[in-house]
Simulated assay, not measured.
Amino acid sequence: MANEAQPCPCDIGHRMEYGGMGHEVQVEHIKAYLTKPPMDTGKAVIVIQDIFGWQLPNTRYIADMIAGNGYTTILPDFFVGQEPWSPSGDWSIFPEWVKSRNARKINKEVEAVLQYLKRHCGAQRIGVVGFCWGGIAVHHIMTTYPEVKAGVCVYGVVKDFGDIYSLKNPTLFIFAENDSAIPLEHVSQLTQKLKEHCKVEYQIKTFSGQTHGFVHRKREDCSPEDKPYIEEARRNLIEWLNKYL
């Protein structure tokens, strides 16, 4: 695990200068970032933020990438107005901060977003993608909502999944080999639990030499060594959605 001085490995990474292709909307009590695909396909994807919140340009970039592949994409503020974590924050208070933002107690927000996508965006099939904190949320959603037809959990902290592994629909899990918050032992335990309890398709991929945040918080040009892994993980994410949505 991360050291006591910084109990989470979620450094901001490479903050993108990115304005976004979508626009902000109000979904009941939640603000959200919405991007439409070039052509309506009747398919939608919920993107769930990491600890740096729904306005992080990097996450909006991924939402737009997904939309460009044919999905109405919505990135809601699952902190519901509470402040996201600041890169300059005092890490000694992080454990208490994250406790106040429980990624497994988001049903009210999930249900509001699902209804919005169906009623206002014509969504007939819906998937979900989440990063870090949002990865935990994806696991919760995929074990709770059968109407969410595909999930991609990107470095969701396994120890916070709860002891529930009966996924309702196909889910892809993406991990980094050198993730101090998610040791490979935890990935192995997840693999065993899913093997015992899961009756739907799933896949677990661990990317060699990568660290927490590599899929959405590293620039493609950050290093020649990292670029192929970033591109492969993003391609796998889209391929999973294409296959099951």
Rank of each mutant, 00 (worst) to 15 (best):
S88R: 11
L56G: 02
K108Q: 15
S166C: 11
K168Q: 14
D90G: 10
H29W: 00
V128K: 01
Q6H: 13
R60Y: 06
Q124R: 15
Q124T: 14
Y145M: 08
S100D: 14
Y116L: 05
W133E: 06
Y202I: 00
G22L: 08
I141H: 03
G13Y: 04
I106W: 03
C132Y: 02
T143Y: 11
D226C: 06
H139W: 01
L241Q: 06
N169G: 01
E231F: 05
I164D: 14
E231D: 11
H23Q: 13
I62W: 00
Q6T: 13
C153E: 04
C153Q: 00
M21S: 11
L241M: 13
I51C: 11
K159P: 02
F94K: 07
L34P: 07
C10W: 05
V45D: 04
P57K: 03
F78Q: 03
I12K: 09
N58S: 06
K159M: 12
P84T: 06
L167E: 02
G151P: 07
W97I: 06
G68N: 12
G134A: 09
E231K: 13
Q203P: 00
R60V: 12
K118H: 10
Y165N: 03
T171I: 01
W91S: 12
A123K: 02
G122M: 08
E28V: 12
H186W: 11
A2I: 09
P170E: 03
A176C: 02
H23M: 09
L75R: 05
G122W: 08
I126P: 05
G89I: 07
V215D: 02
A176W: 00
Q189K: 12
P9T: 08
N58E: 07
W240A: 00
D163P: 09
V148S: 01
L167R: 05
Q115P: 00
T73P: 03
Q115H: 12
I174E: 00
E177I: 02
P95V: 09
D50F: 02
P7V: 13
L194M: 04
R101I: 09
H14P: 01
S92F: 04
P38C: 02
D226A: 14
Q82C: 07
G89N: 07
F175M: 08
L184T: 11
I66A: 02
L194E: 02
A2E: 13
E231Y: 01
Q82S: 15
M1G: 15
L34D: 03
C10N: 09
